[in-house]
Structure formats: C-alpha cells, structure tokens
Design a protein around this nucleic acid. Structure first.
Length: 633
DNA sequence: GCTTAGGCTTTG
C-alpha cells in the first residue's frame, strides 16, 4: 500500500460574498460571542458575531451536543476559522448556522502571539497559508477595530455595572432552585466590603482549609436561572471567565455601610455566561503569578498564608476632600445661586419652623434608593403626581393587544402621510402599517422623519427608532388613527420613551400632527408633539432621599431633579449604561461604599424646608435645590 | 431527523 497525505484545498469566502443556502468556509474576527450554554433543546448553543476586512458582520448560531466541538472563544478579538458553516437569510440578513461536519479553529487575536489553534478536532489542516491569513487578520483588526480595555480585577472593581472576570473557583453551593453560589478569587482583593450570600458553611463544596484562608479574598457570585446548571457542573479549582457580571452597591437593613454584590443574571444577552479556561490561557497564567494555586492545597500541606499573597491593592478614586469642621476644604457640590447665604448647622434647621431656605455644609451618610435606576420616576407638572416608569413588558403587552385589530385600509396614504402595509411571513400573519408623515408634501430624510406604526412588535418599534427621528405607535379605528393606551409611550425618540399623564391628557385627533409637519423646519420636539396631541407630557425625574449629617444633627433631604444636580438628564439614564455608570461614580464619590464617617466628603448645598399637612398630621420636609455636583467629581 | 436561537435597552 502506498499512503499519500494530500491536504484538501479549502476556499474561504469573505463575509461580503455570502449567499443564502450555501455551505462555506470562512475566517472572521470575533466581535461578540455568547460562551456555550445549555439551550432549551438538546444541544449546547453558542452565538458568535464575526467581522472581516470587508467590514461585513455575520452572526452565527452554533449548536452541538458536545460542548467541546463549539469554538473555544475566550474573548472578543479572537480569530476563528469555520469549516462547513451553512449560510441562511434571516430577517433580511445573512446568518451562519452549524451544518453537518462543522468544524472550527480559534486563535488568539493579539498581534505577535503564537498562532496556535484551539480546536476539538483531532485532525485539521493548518499550514503556512492559514498561518498567514491569521496574522493578516490580526493586523487588520489591530488597526481597524476598537480594542477593549484591560480586563477588570477584583482589586479594581467599581460598582461599574457590568464586567468580565477571570478567576479561579474555590467553592460552590446551592442556594435555591433558581440561583447558585460561586465563590471565586482572582489573586487580588476587592477594596470594598463584599456581600456574603447566606449559606451554611457545611453546604459549601470546596477545600475547607482554603475556603477559610481565602475568606477575605474570595467574593460570592450569585448566578441565576439558566446559568445554574452549568455552574453546578464546574470543578473546584478550575479557571473561569465569567462574562457580564453585574456589580451593584447595596446595603442590608442592619448594615450601616453599603457593600458590593456580584450577580450573574439569567439569560444570555450581552454574552452573559460562564466559560472554563484551560491552564494554558495567558490570562490564567497571569492570574497564577499573583496567586498560589489553591488546588495544590490539602489538609496535609496547608496552603500558604494568604497574608503573603501579593495583593494588588487599588483603593478606588478617593475624594480629594478631607476637610473638617475647623478647616473646611473644598466641596464636591457647587452652589449655583444664593451666594450671600451663610451656612446653617443642621441642629438649628431642625429646631426652626418651615418654610425657610438654608445653605448647609454636611456629609452624605446614606441615600435611598441604593439601586439608582429606581430613583427615576415620571412626574406630571400639572397634577404633581409621580409614577413609576412602566417597564418594557407593559409596552409589549399593549402593542400585542393593538396588533389584533388590522390596520384600516381607508386610513392609508392621506394628504399628510404616505403609508406602506405588509403582512408578516410567520404563522401569525400580522399586518403592519407604517405611516410616514410628510413635510411640504414630501418625505424627509429618515433622521428627520416622524412615522406612525400600527401592528408592530416591541422589537420592530425599537428598530425603527434607530433609523427614524420619531416613532408614534397607533391603531386604527373606523374613522381615524389614534394613540394607544397611555400606559404605553405615545412617542419614542432615540432611546427615550415619552409618556403622557393619564389624568391630565385629553388626546386630540392624530391629524393635529399635520400642523407641526407643515412648519418650515419641523423640529419634532416632544413637548410640541405632546401639546398638539393633547398629551400632558410626563417628565423624567430623579427622586432620592439623602441622609445628611454635620456633627450637630441629621436630617433627610429629598432630591427632586430633572437634570441640574447630576448634570445628567433623568430621561436618558435608563437607556444609557455610560450615564448610569457616571451617576454611580458620582454617588460613590459623594458617599463612598464602605466609607467611614471621616472618609466622607463634605457637601455644600441649599435646602429648603416646607410644611406638609395631611389631615391632623403636620410634618416638615426638606428639599435640595439650586445645587450641582462639581464637575471634577 | 428535528429543535435549540436568531447577540446588542442586562440590574433578583
């Protein structure tokens, strides 16, 4: 017999040349990925979005009953080679999906790193030509894609909302049916007090000695729902990367200072999940250089004294303000008016009658709500009522209800809007109508266009807000289009949903919009749209309770703020992670988590007292006004 | 052989 090894010649398709219904081989740089997770079917699933030098993106949905045959992607920027991936069109876009014989290689995307494929296949082709492709893609990515910053360490965590953590598993325990506890460390120490999930020590699986020795270095991560099954199966001592951990600041009822909690919420969006890293992973190697290997510890050979562990202590941003009563330093808030007012001690204020205005110098002992997103409410300036911001599910429900009635064909294409209508291809056969409002009898550029939609889903409405200036969800009656129930936003602009007050609004016919459309340059201001539609616009507002102290007394002052105090519009914060982060940072500066009294910075602010009479009861309340957080905070 | 999910407004 004569054996000859002949490497098959593979052709690779670039992402801008993909055709529906084909099976292709391709390379791509990972732009987004969900680490393999247990799907609701029989397989593991991993979703991977690639990009290549054609600048076209491709989202691939990969399934396999064997988790090892899914690509071993550890971070965004990794490079993959897929063989025999099927291309399909889905929602107007190309999509990749595993087909028979699917195989993948994954490479570190760092320029200059060794080109070593990660794969589960025993046999694969990989030669000089392939090596060259990977190196070229690395160079292209380095100059064309934005790089993510260095990974977060426990020593550097801020209540930063979401981050990925590379760590080692020290202990694990069942908490309840829908949550599971992972005790992990990364060789550094979190500078804040961290939350301990209440679990009996005997219920924690792990090396007892080590659990004890690392008790002040480990953090508890509570994982929920779909992540529980995977978390249960993790081996103690294994190295993990946990993606999109939520850090939040909270305080228990009996605690004086707040602590930090770590959660891995349910679901897989944003790539939330848990991946196991091999010991050869560079980040694991780095972790080991600053931490002894706990898996080497046993009862016979006690682990090294944790005190000897090199702990990267990084005290988070400290306030520059350390003044005291006698030598006051600068303040973290600035007063925007009433500069002639002198400071008044809290004790004096508490002993005075209302209403009055004061300038005070005090420390923020604590505040509510600790979950900052809960501080956002909707305020009606007409009836002075406050209400919670409805959640997306409410809106979805209302949209579903309105989609039952098909658009009225007689209400299409009028003098002031053009309409398009179609039926969805799915089994629901929904009828959707979009009415584009015209200006000067013409359609405007999408970014200047107001449209009305009938029969759309939440997702479809969202997509439209990305492209068009204003979206108004409507439904047909026999005579006219009308707004939906006012529990739904009557207008969406960008990320912001605008609501109307149910009590104070008297909706007018939709036709009233045509008067704004006829303006020379319609600005489509929410206030103006609300006005012509007879809607009393609800304003987004921050409502918080600050407990202030100054050594003479303590008082609770309310913050009622549209934008001035934080320099952040309350309307934008719910849909903007960056602003949420900024607000959290501001609160951390004004009231550092775990801060002792001496560490708290001084704030200067104006407060006014006012009387509230409720039947026989009479109470004095305090409200912060004309105060802004200093820009350098 | 079919399904799974179909990233992208996350917050227990």
């Amino acid at each position: 017999m004569h054996f000859q090894s002949v490497a098959p010649k593979y052709a690779y398709t670039s992402l801008n040349h993909l055709k529906d219904g084909t099976i292709v081989n391709l390379y791509g740089i990972v732009k987004f990925f969900k680490p393999p997770y247990v799907s609701k079917g029989t397989d593991y699933c991993s979703v991977v979005t690639l990009v290549d030098p054609s600048n076209v993106k491709l989202t691939c949905t990969l399934f396999s009953g064997n988790v090892d045959s899914l690509p071993k992607i550890y971070k965004v920027g990794d490079i993959v080679r897929f063989h025999r991936i099927k291309i399909r069109e889905y929602n107007g876009q190309m999509q990749g999906i595993t087909s028979v014989g699917f195989a993948s290689l994954t490479f570190d995307g760092t320029v200059g790193a060794p080109v070593v494929p990660r794969t589960s296949s025993k046999v694969y082709t990989f030669m000089d030509e392939e090596q060259k492709i990977v190196e070229e893609l690395r160079v292209w990515a380095a100059s064309n894609l934005s790089v993510c910053g260095p990974a977060a360490k426990l020593s550097g965590v801020q209540p930063m909302l979401f981050f990925d953590l590379t760590c080692q598993l020290v202990g694990k325990a069942k908490v309840d049916g829908s949550s599971f506890l992972l005790k992990v460390w990364d060789g550094t120490k979190c500078p804040y007090p961290t939350w301990k999930v209440p679990v009996e020590a005997r219920d924690v699986e792990g090396e007892k000695v080590l659990l004890h020795q690392l008790q002040n270095l480990m953090v508890d991560i509570l994982v929920y729902d779909n992540h529980v099954q995977l978390a249960k199966s993790l081996k103690i001592g294994s190295f993990l990367r946990i993606y999109s951990i939520h850090t939040k600041q909270a305080s228990a009822v009996d605690e004086d200072v707040s602590h930090i909690e770590f959660h891995l919420h349910g679901g897989t969006c944003y790539g939330r999940g848990i991946g196991v890293l091999p010991e050869s992973n560079p980040d694991v190697k780095e972790l080991k250089t600053c931490a002894p290997d706990p898996s080497s510890a046993s009862l016979d050979t006690p682990a090294r004294d944790p005190k000897l562990i090199r702990v990267i202590e990084g005290r988070p941003h400290q306030c520059q303000v350390q003044g005291d009563d006698h030598f006051p330093g600068p303040s973290d808030t600035i007063l925007t008016d009433h500069q002639d007012l002198n400071n008044t001690e809290l004790k004096t204020i508490l002993n005075s009658t209302a209403p009055q205005q004061y300038r005070i110098r005090a420390k923020l002992r604590t505040y509510k709500p600790q979950k900052l997103y809960q501080s956002i409410k909707l305020h009606c300036s007409k009836c002075n009522s406050l209400q919670e911001v409805p959640d997306g599910d409410d809106f979805d429900f209302i949209l579903q209800g309105s989609a039952i009635t098909a658009p009225n064909a007689e209400l299409q294409n009028t003098s002031w809007y053009d309409s398009v209508m179609w039926t969805t291809q799915d089994e629901k056969q929904r009828k959707i109508a979009i009415h584009f409002v015209k200006h000067d009898e013409m359609l405007q550029q999408p970014e200047d266009t107001l449209l009305m939609i009938e029969g759309g889903t939440l997702k479809e409405v969202w997509k439209l807000t990305k492209i068009f200036k204003c979206v108004i969800p409507v439904r047909s009656t026999e005579e006219d289009l009308e707004l939906l129930d006012l529990s739904a936003p009557f207008l969406l602009q960008g990320n912001i949903k605008y609501y109307g007050c149910k009590q104070c609004s008297t909706p007018k016919p939709i036709k009233s919009l045509s008067s704004i459309a006829a303006e020379q340059r319609p600005s489509w201001e929410p206030t103006e749209i609300a006005q012509v539609l007879g809607i009393e616009l609800l304003q987004y507002v921050f409502i918080m309770k600050f407990t202030l102290i100054d050594g003479t007394g303590a008082l609770n002052a309310y913050l009622f703020d549209y934008e001035k105090f934080f320099q952040i519009p309350a309307s934008e914060i719910l849909s903007n992670n960056f602003l949420q982060h900024k607000m959290q940072m501001t609160m951390n500066t004004l009231c550092p988590p775990g801060g002792k009294l001496d560490d708290l910075p001084w704030l200067e602010c104006f407060i006014k007292s006012y009387n509230v009479r409720d039947g026989m009861k009479h109470q004095v309340y305090y409200q912060i006004f004309d105060t802004t957080v200093a820009e350098d905070v």
